[in-house]
C-alpha cells in the first residue's frame, strides 16, 4: 500500500512522515516517533491509557488513525516534563501521593488530568472523580490519584 504523507506538530516539534493509511495514531506515536510514554491498553477506547491531547483536547489515540492527525497539534505525556528535567507539578503530585504503582495507566491519567486542571483549577472531589472516570487503574484504588489531583490543583492556585 502506498504511504500517505502527514505533517503534524508533536510536543512542539514539526514532524513530517509517510505512513500507512491503516496505522493507528497510538502506534505511530510509539513505533514511528519512539515516544513510548503513551501506553496502549485495550485498543478500543475503554481503558484510557493511550490518552493524548489533539489540538488541546484529551482524546484516545487508539481510536484515531495517524492520517487523521495530519495538520494537528499533538501532545503526549513526554510534553509534561519541565525543561530542566524535573517532574512538573502534576507528575510530582502523583509521585508524592503514591498515585501509581505499576504505572501502566499513569500517562493516560496525567494527560486527562492536565487538560482538566487547565479548565477547572479548583475542582471538588466529585468533579475529579468524574474527570478520571474514563481512565482505568487496577493498582491504586483511585484514592491516591484523587489526592494527587487535589495537590496539583492546590500547587497551581498557590
Amino acid at each position: 500500500m502506498d504511504g500517505v504523507k502527514i505533517n503534524l506538530k508533536v510536543n512542539g516539534q514539526d514532524i513530517s512522515r509517510e505512513v500507512d493509511a491503516r496505522l493507528l495514531l497510538s502506534d505511530f506515536i510509539r513505533e514511528n516517533l519512539l515516544l513510548t510514554g503513551t501506553h496502549i491498553g485495550c485498543e478500543h477506547g475503554v481503558c484510557g491509557a493511550c490518552t493524548i491531547h489533539v489540538n488541546g483536547d484529551p482524546v484516545r489515540s487508539c481510536l484515531m488513525l495517524a492520517v487523521q492527525a495530519d495538520g494537528c497539534e499533538v501532545k503526549t505525556v513526554e510534553s509534561l516534563i519541565q525543561e530542566n528535567g524535573d517532574l512538573n507539578h502534576l507528575q510530582q503530585a502523583f509521585s508524592d501521593n503514591h498515585a501509581l504503582q505499576c504505572g501502566f495507566c499513569t500517562p493516560g491519567f496525567l494527560m486527562t488530568v492536565s487538560s482538566f486542571l487547565e479548565e477547572n483549577s479548583n475542582p471538588c472531589e466529585a468533579e475529579i472523580r468524574k474527570c478520571i472516570s474514563g481512565n482505568l487503574c487496577r493498582c491504586t484504588g483511585y484514592s491516591n490519584i484523587i489526592k494527587a489531583v487535589k495537590q496539583a490543583a492546590q500547587t497551581v492556585s498557590n
Binding site: 484510557g48 484529551p58 482524546v59 481510536l63 484515531m64
Partner: peptide, 9 residues
C-alpha cells in the same frame, strides 16, 4: 455517551 475523551472526537 462514553467519556470526555470519546466525546471530544
Amino acid at each position: 455517551v462514553g467519556h470526555e475523551q470519546i466525546r471530544n472526537r
